[in-house]
Design a protein around this nucleic acid. Structure first.
Lengths: 144, 144
DNA sequence: TATCATTTTGAGACAGCTTATCAATTTCAA
DNA sequence: TTGAAATTGATAAGCTGTCTCAAAATGATA
């Protein structure tokens, strides 16, 4: 199972090595669960993993997902009161189209928008480090 | 004082009327405080208003700011763990440039970006209702 | 492989922000 | 003025996420 995620595992190991951190059973488990899906919530992962490992603590999941963020594998995104963790290891930065009807999330990239963002920032004396762009609306199915 | 905000007050009254809600001293007070500034936090307003009205409850402020959102006067924005309420009554939609150094917030509008957003949405079968775009970086002063 | 300093974990306490509860008060239509 | 309905203030409760700390696991070293 974890075999599929060799590259991500290598990236994690590299980060662990650089920071005197250890590879644990829990970190492996959470990594493979994390890579299996997009936009997961710590709480959701907690319930998901509870089936196979009832004693895996919620705090460990939060800690580990934050670790993945530090390692550059994940990115936390706040949707309303929820924080979802995106997998950004296998792709570059991306933005989101979110259906307010069915909660479906579509990822997209648009170089032209990114370029214009830089332009706006420069005009205001800013240097951009990160950004978030979320478009909320209805997908074709939810429009009836 | 409230005289300056006749238009917003009218908009609020219209909303109240349509929903069988009542105009109270607190709602007037919070409206005038709200319109006096940008990007305010419920907590900040609570402390601000405590000087002139020590018994105005925090819950009332939250309730009232959410009411303003419903009425189309305000918009809630989540910056990290903080929720700030923007005045959107006197201007159209706008996006934010946020300095991660000094927390300064600069508003901007960019029609070209908005147009490209529509394009992306259409391409994916979405119809956009709202969006949020936040650029995080360092302002010229914080770059030393 | 055994040792052991260091890191990590799990469980629950705790913290910050926001909403719910409810008796008392206020509003406003009649 | 009256009274049904909405609102308020105070605080309890809820939610999400972090902190604490004793016990367990890891992994570098011998």
């Amino acid at each position: 199972m974890a075999v599929k995620y060799v590259k991500e595992m290598e990236a994690l190991k590299e980060h662990l090595g650089k920071h005197q951190l250890k590879l644990t059973r829990q970190r492996e488990l959470i990594l493979s669960a994390f890579l299996r899906q997009e936009h997961i919530t710590a709480e959701a992962m907690y319930h998901q993993l509870a089936k196979s490992d009832p004693h895996l603590g919620l705090a460990t999941i939060y800690r580990t997902l934050n670790l993945f963020c530090d390692a550059g594998l994940a990115q936390a995104r706040h949707f309303g009161s929820q924080t979802k963790y995106d997998n950004i290891s296998h792709k570059g930065h991306h933005d989101h189209l979110i259906c307010t009807g069915c909660e479906k999330i579509v990822e997209f990239e648009n170089e032209e928008i990114e370029r214009l963002q830089e332009e706006v920032a420069t005009k205001n004396g800013f240097i951009i480090k990160t950004h978030r762009l979320e478009l909320y609306g209805l997908c074709s199915r939810c429009r009836h």
